[in-house]
Write a protein that binds this DNA or RNA. Structure first.
Lengths: 160, 160
DNA sequence: TAAAATAGTTGACAAATATAACTAATTCTT
DNA sequence: AAGAATTAGTTATATTTGTCAACTATTTTA
């Protein structure tokens, strides 16, 4: 038996642990797919067909240079296609291919099923509160002015 | 302005995003320390002096081979010391050095401060519920029997 | 006491992340 | 309308991180 999941950890650390457990379960459940990662990108694309890369980056907090590699990988696996937005030719639309869509459907099902299991024995109200607070915490963290962050030190170079 | 933090993402993905934002803020606030990562390990050691490696691994869900490298890094930086448990000579106790303790105190303060800012405008009750549910979700995910994970596929090898 | 399990380590490798410099296209400024 | 600045995406590189199998040393178990 593992020791208890620690109750005294900062919220960021707990969130990281939660995501580790979650993605561990997810990738186990999707063991026999021909892509082994970037499920969340596929999930996002499933719900946002034909959006451009930057939108994916912003929503999933993935760096744009990393995103290039993710999409190269998914493209090589035949899951996605890139097309140029004629209205703004800098942008590349990302679309799931027929194969990508079919496989991503299973991925979405896996996500849904694990979400469901994750909230077992938790009331609908608590679940709602949880998700609402999670949203707010993200918003708070996202809008932290970087000056706020230097409290026990004098500000040095403040690279941001 | 970034687009909204997406409300339709699976809980694991949201938790990952939360932790990214959190650790981004944290490392910015600790910019001028001579260690640049593994803050959560130091945080944990601060509250659990002289525990052995496996306990840290279990609590923070870090692989034991990764932990070796983490501790090598922290040891080289002069933050920690390893000693053998005389009662069970397989175990290595990890202790913060004097320097490590002094620096980690600042790290703990940073964690606390960011936690506080993260929960701005969130009521005490909601915060409590949030943390309780987070705990439960982790527990649910942790105890998922791996059979539960193969629902849309026939079970293959089920390596676990 | 032999076999199994546990704590920790090593080395090789794959993957993630960060940075800077770059192209191409668009928008802003005057 | 020209030039500057910005934006989307890419490339290349380097560093860090995570994963895996195999290993030592020690303790537990059967």
């Amino acid at each position: 038996m593992k020791s208890e999941i620690n109750n005294e950890l900062p919220v960021g650390t707990r969130a990281l642990i939660l995501s580790k457990l979650y993605y561990g379960a997810l990738s186990k459940s999707l063991d026999n797919l021909d892509v082994e990662r970037y499920y969340s990108v596929l999930f996002f694309l499933y719900n946002h067909q034909n959006c451009c890369q930057q939108v994916v980056c912003d929503n999933l907090r993935i760096d744009k240079t990393a995103m290039v590699k993710v999409l190269d990988y998914l493209s090589k696996a035949g899951y996605i296609e890139r097309t140029t937005n004629p209205a703004d030719r800098r942008e590349h639309f990302i679309r799931l291919s027929k194969k990508g869509e079919k496989q991503t459907k299973k991925i979405v099902q896996s996500f849904d099923s694990i979400d469901e299991k994750a909230f077992l024995n938790i009331s609908e109200g608590e679940r709602k509160t949880f998700l609402k607070v999670m949203q707010l915490v993200c918003k708070n963290l996202d809008s932290l002015p970087s000056d706020d962050l230097f409290f026990n030190y004098k500000k040095t170079k403040a690279k941001n």
